[in-house]
Amino acid sequence: MKKENEKLTVGKIFRDGLLDQNPIFVQLLGMCSTLAISTSVINALGMGGSVTFVLILSNLFISVLRNLIPSKIRIASYIVIIAGFVTVVDMVLQAYIPSLAASLGLFIPLIVVNCIILARAESFASKNKPLPSVLDGLAMGLGFTVALVIISAIRELFGNGTLLGFAVMPEGYSPAVLVISPVGGFLILGALIALVQWFRARKKDKED
């Protein structure tokens, strides 16, 4: 009985992260890095992986320390913890995956101020036990990564004629540079969020 209960919560955490509370498409968090780095699928995977890593560890530590962090300085404490893990990611990427570090550039250190991480710290990790917090970090990170990959696949395919760096469009396809430029980022993200809102509204109508 108890096991089934746990299973349900795990399922809910993942459904929230990937669908119902998807950080990008539903909560509309972390727009800066979403727009900036979604020009190639490789970048999206790198950014998604980095954010997931930071989310899991910051959620874990904030959850473990939640009774030691006075509420008056909690935001400052969260930022210090998050900044620590972000710097670790930055150094590791520079040492072992330099091409990714170069193409993500300043958006790696800027994960510190990515609203997703602070929002999960404040609304989940500070109120829950370590294990669910880690799962929440993983689920939200995956949701962020999946959304990023969808956006970047569209931009890379039409803007560059490639996917993961491999040419997939037929020869003679002339890439629509607009899609990969900042303008395309705004337009495609806007259209995708509208699509998600349309689906959600339709689902809600059916349920009613």
Partner: peptide
């Protein structure tokens, strides 16, 4: 309806970005 709020703001932002480019 699906475009109300953030989506239309993003699209307006995109058109402004086009003007700037």
């Amino acid at each position: 309806k699906p475009f109300r709020g953030i989506p239309i703001a993003l699209i307006a932002g995109g058109l402004l970005a086009l003007a700037f480019s």
